Amino acid sequence: TTLHFDLDGKKLQYTGVSEEIARLVEELKRRGVDLKEIVRILEELLK
């Protein structure tokens, strides 16, 4: 799965993300978590 974000005018793309992580990101968005925080979490998970 590939995730795309537009953060402060920067286009971020994460490829090869598992379905689980993609679902987690969608859930965080639904809960109103700040996009910067979501990206920070995502980068930690993908290390």
Rank of each mutant, 00 (worst) to 15 (best):
L35T: 15
Y14R: 00
V33F: 11
D34K: 08
L28W: 14
E19P: 11
K11Q: 15
T2A: 05
S18C: 02
R31Q: 12
E20R: 08
D6C: 07
L12K: 04
G16D: 08
V39S: 02
T15E: 13
K11C: 08
H4V: 14
L42N: 00
H4L: 12
A22M: 09
D34E: 13
L24Q: 15
K36D: 07
E27H: 13
I41R: 11
L12Q: 05
E43Q: 06
L35N: 09
R40L: 08
K47A: 11
V17E: 01
K47F: 14
K10N: 10
K10A: 10
D8V: 02
T1H: 15
E19W: 15
E37M: 10
I38G: 00
F5D: 01
Y14H: 00
T15C: 05
G9R: 01
G9Y: 02
I38D: 00
Q13K: 14
V17K: 01
K36W: 15
G32K: 07
H4D: 13
T15M: 07
R30A: 12
L28E: 04
E37H: 07
E27A: 14
E44W: 15
D6Y: 13
T15P: 07
D8K: 01
E20P: 13
L7N: 03
D34V: 10
Q13D: 06
G32A: 12
T2C: 05
E20C: 06
I38E: 00
D34I: 12
E26D: 12
E20A: 12
D34L: 11
V17I: 09
T2F: 04
Y14G: 00
I21E: 04
T15S: 11
I41D: 03
R31Y: 05
G16H: 14
A22S: 09
T1R: 10
E27R: 12
I41A: 08
I21G: 06
G32S: 09
L12G: 01
L46Q: 04
T2P: 02
L45I: 08
D8R: 00
I38Q: 06
L3P: 01
E37F: 07
V17S: 01
D6M: 07
I41F: 07
K29I: 12
K29T: 13
E44K: 09
L46S: 03
Q13G: 03
K36P: 08
T2R: 03
R31W: 06
K10I: 14
R31N: 10
K10M: 14
S18G: 06
V39F: 03
T15V: 13
R23C: 08
D6E: 13
S18F: 02
I41S: 06
K47L: 12
L28N: 03
E27N: 11
I21P: 02
A22V: 14
L3D: 01
K47P: 08
V33A: 06
I21T: 11
L46P: 02
G16Y: 08
